[in-house]
Computed example of a mutant assay.
Amino acid sequence: MKKLISELESYKKEENIWKISGEISNSAGTLTLHLIGNLNHFIGSVMGHTGYIRDREAEFSLRNVPKRELLNQIGESIKVIKNTISEFPKDNYSTNYPLEVFGKPMTYLYFMIHLQGHLNYHLGQVNYHRRLLDI
């Protein structure tokens, strides 16, 4: 998530965070909201019992959230993730994650690796978005 902060801070024009063009249908802002919601739900709420309630539809429909607000939300998400992981019993990583996200049981460890890949996939999209559309 710290790399996501770096990517957002690298935009020359704040309004370009929300720019879409041609085949690029998700802005960096949308991808940021999606990652915040995804990690707060699957790590914070499910693993850490934070009470976070995800609004996935809003992740893809909100627009023009100020960069400062996005950065604040990422910072809060980092705290939630660090707290949850530091308090999660290491022995539990080999037990089944309570949700069958892919329609079958999987361990916490398996799902954490998936979440890391998901984060990096969208982080690459944000980087590409910035280099193409922040002009």
Rank of each mutant, 00 (worst) to 15 (best):
T32G: 04
M1K: 01
Y108L: 04
D55R: 12
G37Y: 00
L4V: 04
K90H: 07
K90Q: 14
I5V: 14
W18T: 12
Q125H: 13
D134Y: 05
I24C: 08
P105S: 11
N40H: 10
S21V: 02
I113A: 10
L33T: 07
Q73C: 01
Y52W: 13
Y121I: 03
H114M: 07
D134N: 10
P89I: 11
A58F: 05
R131Q: 15
P105H: 08
R130L: 06
G51D: 05
H122P: 09
S94I: 12
E14F: 05
N127H: 09
S25R: 15
K2R: 14
S61C: 02
G117P: 02
N127C: 07
V65R: 00
N16A: 10
H34N: 13
Y93G: 05
V126N: 01
E59A: 13
K67D: 01
I78G: 05
Y97T: 07
N40K: 15
L71N: 03
K90C: 03
H41N: 09
G44H: 01
E9L: 14
L70M: 14
S61N: 12
S10V: 02
R68I: 11
V46L: 10
L39T: 05
I78H: 04
F42V: 03
Y97G: 09
I81M: 01
S10Y: 04
E87W: 01
S61M: 03
D55G: 03
Y121G: 00
R63F: 03
N120F: 11
T50L: 05
D91I: 08
V126P: 03
I53V: 12
I5S: 10
H49A: 13
A58W: 02
N120A: 05
T30N: 09
K104F: 06
V80T: 13
L62C: 04
K12D: 01
G44V: 02
L4S: 05
G48L: 12
I53W: 04
R63P: 00
M106E: 14
I20E: 08
K13H: 13
V126Q: 01
G117L: 04
L4P: 02
T95V: 03
M106F: 08
S45C: 11
G124K: 04
I85G: 00
L132P: 02
L115E: 09
R56Q: 15
